[in-house]
Simulated assay, not measured.
Amino acid sequence: MRILSPVIMAIGLLLLVLAVSACNARGGPVPPPADGALRVVTMNAHYILLNADDDDPWSVAGWQQRRGAMVQVLDDLDADLIALQELESFQRGDDGSINLARDDLMAAMPRFGLAASGDWQQFPSTQPILYRRDRLQLLDQGWFFFSDTPDVIYSRTFNGSFPAFASWAWFQDRRDGTRLRVVNVHLDFRSGQNRLQSARLIAARIAPWLEDGDHVALAGDLNALADSKTVDILTDAGLQLTAARGSSFHFNRGLNLFGAIDHVLHDCGTGLTDRPVAVRQRPGGQWPSDHYPVLAQLTPGRGNCGQR
């Protein structure tokens, strides 16, 4: 049997990658607002590395190049709630007082309030939730770490790796008085076991809310596909997931090689007007992040708990 040359094999592999990328590329345009729905967005914004060289895409210079695209994309989504992950500026040492992306976004988007945020020594700043102040009133907020000591700030994860956590905020709709708890998460991309244990902790923490009949939405970077065991734990806990169309992670190159890993889940009492969509925009040829934002339109109080 003739053995294919390395060049032919490389070309074949490239064609396969491009074909898969094309199949997964179908995200969708920004959908128009649905009547009465809350437009909920999740987006991993990627960390800023304060000490990185300027040619690093995640350096301060890199952020200055992509922040305009980030603002434009988020503005075009016309969201009521934006759950952001990796919104942190890293530097050597433990000082978390600098957060360039948070400050720049809040300055550029004055109609939004800032929830799930506070003094970094008391409230982790990496996963804020932005909300439309003319639509929503903030009632409460909090956090818990994916750890054996979840109520100790900056606890390391179950296997001792870097701290990871859930932030949450409770809102009331100024239009009709309905309330919604939003949980913003970022699960471990390396350790599947960490993801499973984190999902179990999330399930335990939201259980009292669901038992009380609260409306709950979970948004974030799960680093897990819709048919994964991680998602199964969350849906078994009482949440529902409709996977976004197409990929949500693109390697900062527009490569769409697998389904969405960024998701918006919701309780059965909350309706979903249409399938969520990963919105692919590259203003001025600049990717805002290595993730696309995922938009879902939710209607708390209009779900059907008789169907799972």
Rank of each mutant, 00 (worst) to 15 (best):
C23A: 13
D94T: 11
G28V: 04
L234F: 09
D151T: 07
A199T: 03
I82E: 02
G28R: 03
V182W: 06
A83Q: 05
V277G: 05
V30K: 03
A108V: 07
V41H: 01
D55T: 08
L265C: 04
A244S: 14
M1R: 08
A37E: 03
A19F: 15
S191D: 12
Q141V: 03
A224C: 13
A45N: 04
G36W: 11
N184W: 05
P6I: 05
L18S: 11
L74I: 04
P29D: 14
L180P: 00
C305R: 06
S167V: 00
L100Q: 03
D119W: 08
G93Y: 12
T149G: 13
D54R: 09
L16K: 01
D55N: 12
L180M: 13
D290Y: 10
I153F: 14
F162C: 04
D78N: 13
D262Q: 08
I11Y: 09
L222A: 07
V73I: 10
A83S: 15
R302H: 15
Q121D: 14
T178Q: 15
R175I: 10
I202H: 05
D227R: 05
Q64T: 02
D221T: 02
Q286Y: 11
I261G: 01
T235R: 12
W287H: 02
G96Q: 13
V182I: 15
R308W: 14
A115W: 01
Y131L: 05
M9V: 08
L225I: 11
G269Y: 10
A19Q: 07
P57I: 01
G259I: 04
V73K: 00
V60L: 13
R280Y: 15
G96C: 10
L130N: 01
G238N: 03
L241M: 10
A244E: 08
R156G: 04
S125A: 12
V41L: 07
W168M: 02
G238E: 02
S198Q: 02
L136N: 00
R174T: 05
N24D: 09
G285E: 11
V30P: 02
Q65I: 07
G177Q: 09
D80A: 04
P29E: 14
N223W: 06
D176K: 00
G192S: 10
Y47L: 07
G238C: 06
C268V: 04
G160E: 08
S21C: 09
T157A: 14
P6L: 07
Q307R: 10
V231S: 00
Q85G: 02
R111E: 15
R133E: 15
Q64I: 02
R175V: 12
S191M: 10
P288R: 01
G271S: 11
W170T: 00
A244P: 10
G160A: 07
P283A: 10
F144V: 00
N99D: 13
A37H: 06
D148T: 09
A207P: 07
E211S: 14
F123V: 03
A107L: 11
S125V: 11
G246D: 02
F145Y: 12
R26Q: 14
V279L: 09
E88T: 04
Q172E: 15
